[in-house]
């Protein structure tokens, strides 16, 4: 009896220590990544790097200013296209489509789209925009990123609007306000914080996407030349530099990684700290 109890205690201690080890490994992977990028990136980061165009191939120096501007433009356009659609659809699901076949189909489609790999979304944008126009363009990149953002914003909007207490809705209706005004001016503003957070999270995810941009926005060594021309983006420039054979480009890739990571993590962390997502809104 005593020895069996001791054995159980030992198994208990061993297994619990193993789970602690798992958590330690997971957390140290993150810290390792952050630390290593900061260390390698910081040494190559300079004001010139942030404000200059890339140097011609073979020359050292140069910067990624065009990629930063390009990323802002492509991601910004994507947000303008995707967030309103996501919010409106989420609002529909929460207010009118809780049950019924249409609501179910929309919800299911959003879940499917959320799971589709970004490279396949890029392929779709390629077939939809690039092939008919016969040119790579910033616009096609934005379409791809917007399609990545919509399902995220949609599902969170549905969650947050669904959490608005029915009493608030009824109070507005009891004053004789038409339903649509109650939804648009009372319910939606109540859920504002959550929706904004979800939009920021979607934005930070889109800003780091590379795969769908390779054959849509394509990349360019120049300043941006409008929505209908190829454009440089930060993740893709980083990718091109990382797989290049040049030592100097590798150095710049680390610096670009630091810039990208600082932006993505800053947006992501502040959005999460500002509002923890509701229970059950996984993925």
């Amino acid at each position: 009896m005593n020895s069996s109890y001791a054995r159980r205690r030992r198994v208990n201690a061993l297994m619990l220590a193993l789970t602690a080890l798992c958590a330690a490994v997971s957390a140290s992977v993150l810290l390792g990544i952050l630390g290593y990028i900061a260390w390698r990136g910081a040494s190559s980061l300079s004001w010139a790097f942030l404000t200059r165009l890339p140097a011609p191939v073979g020359e050292t120096g140069g910067g990624i200013a065009n990629a930063i501007v390009g990323s802002a433009k492509v991601v910004g356009t994507a947000a303008l296209l995707g967030i309103p659609v996501g919010v409106a659809s989420g609002l529909y699901l929460a207010e009118y489509g809780r049950r019924g076949r249409f609501g179910f189909l929309v919800r299911y489609a959003a879940d499917v789209m959320n799971g589709v790999p970004s490279i396949v979304i890029g392929l779709f944008a390629y077939a939809l925009v690039v092939m008919p126009m016969k040119r790579f363009s910033a616009l096609s990149g934005s379409v791809a990123l917007a399609l990545i953002m919509i399902p995220v914003v949609l599902r969170s909007t549905e969650d947050f609007v669904g959490q608005v207490p029915g009493t608030i809705r009824e109070a507005a209706l009891a004053l004789g306000v038409p339903r649509w005004k109650a939804v648009a001016f009372v319910v939606l503003p109540t859920a504002r914080r959550g929706i904004l957070t979800a939009s920021l999270l979607a934005l930070s995810r889109a800003a780091g996407e590379t795969a769908p941009l390779i054959f849509t926005s394509f990349g360019s060594p120049y300043w941006d030349q409008g929505l209908l021309n190829p454009i440089a983006t930060l993740p893709q420039t980083l990718y091109n530099y990382a797989i290049s054979p040049y030592e100097d480009w590798h150095r710049q890739a680390w610096a670009a990684a630091l810039v990208l990571m600082l932006f993505v993590l800053a947006v992501n962390a502040s959005a999460r700290l500002w509002l923890r997502p509701p229970q059950g809104s996984s993925s």
């Binding site: 997971s26 957390a27 992977v29 993150l30 810290l31 990544i33 290593y36 990028i37 930070s204 995810r205 800003a207 780091g208 996407e209 590379t210 795969a211 993740p235 893709q236 980083l238 990718y239 990382a242 890739a253 680390w254 990684a257 990208l260 990571m261 993505v264 993590l265 992501n268 962390a269 999460r272």
Partner: peptide, 17 residues
């Protein structure tokens, strides 16, 4: 929180590592 941030690290940065 740290684990959630790990999910946010762009794929291309992990590729660089």
């Amino acid at each position: 929180f740290a684990v959630e941030l790990l999910a946010a690290v762009p794929s291309v940065i992990l590729g660089l590592m």
